[in-house]
């Protein structure tokens, strides 16, 4: 599904990603862990196509296509979803209106007619339950006045609505209490199929108690310095990142 080769990217002349290699196949869950400033969020942003990051080297192919050639909205329509670490507020734009626009844009991309209002509302109701989202939130403006937990749940709700092929969840666990964490993780687990894949970016092992990864990668200083199975996450929890850092410095 996704093949990243020697990806280098910088922002304002400063190199953040220094040669990332990663392959993600359908049905897999990958966790990317690493200390602050290691480049985790940058990787997520580059994959989603945020223009402030310049890709200086490397290739990313997505279902055989050159991902880096695609605009952010094309990537979204082709099934890439980014769960934002800090979801953005859009005052005055209701969630219903926002989601309907998004769903219809993506349908248009696939050559489908716009969804009918009744089908759309039905879909909203169904997906809201999945993340136990308060019904009233749909009528409020996008993320405006949402609590931290509501914002994160709202991200997973949008993910459920858009049914992406590849979801990249950037620090979705940050700022969540244990109940919210469980709800969010449940949502992600329920949306998992054999056809889609998830990249979970997290600082803590905690989330991985709920979302069991197939692979864990440790990112440090713009490079993946170690990959392993889910047991790697426990090891990190126990020992921290330093032993790996030292390892990679040798």
């Amino acid at each position: 599904m996704l093949l990243i080769k020697n990806l280098r990217a910088s922002v304002e002349g400063k190199e953040i990603l220094k040669g990332i290699n990663l392959e993600v196949k359908a049905g897999e869950v990958h966790a990317i862990m690493g200390p602050n400033g290691s480049g985790k969020s940058t990787l997520a942003s580059v994959l989603a196509g945020r223009e402030i990051f310049q890709v200086t080297e490397g290739k990313v192919s997505y279902f055989g296509k050159d991902l880096l050639e695609m605009s952010p909205e094309e990537r979204a329509s082709e099934g890439i979803f980014l769960g934002f670490q800090y979801p953005i507020e859009i005052p005055g734009v209701s969630m219903v209106n926002f989601m309907k626009t998004a769903v219809n844009e993506q349908r248009k991309h696939k050559g489908l007619d716009p969804i009918s209002s009744s089908d759309f509302l039905k879909l909203m109701r169904e997906k809201k339950e999945l993340v136990e989202l308060d019904a009233a939130l749909a009528n409020r403006s996008v993320n405006e006045g949402f609590s931290g937990g509501e914002k994160k749940r709202n991200e997973i709700f949008q993910m459920a609505m858009l049914e992406p092929k590849l979801s990249i969840l950037d620090e979705t666990d940050s700022g969540l209490d244990i109940d919210a964490l469980r709800i969010v993780a449940n949502g992600v687990n329920k949306l998992k199929t054999a056809e889609n894949a998830t990249i979970v970016i997290t600082h803590y092992q905690r989330l991985l108690d709920y979302i069991i990864p197939d692979y864990v990668h440790v990112l440090n200083n713009g490079k993946i310095i170690k990959s392993g199975g889910k047991e790697l996450a426990f090891e990190l929890e126990e020992k921290g990142y330093d032993w790996l850092k030292n390892d990679s410095d040798k």
């Binding site: 196509g49 953005i88 844009e105």
Partner: peptide, 9 residues
């Protein structure tokens, strides 16, 4: 960008 990421031009 947030809108773009949801597929909105």
């Amino acid at each position: 960008f947030y809108c773009n990421q949801r597929g909105i031009k």
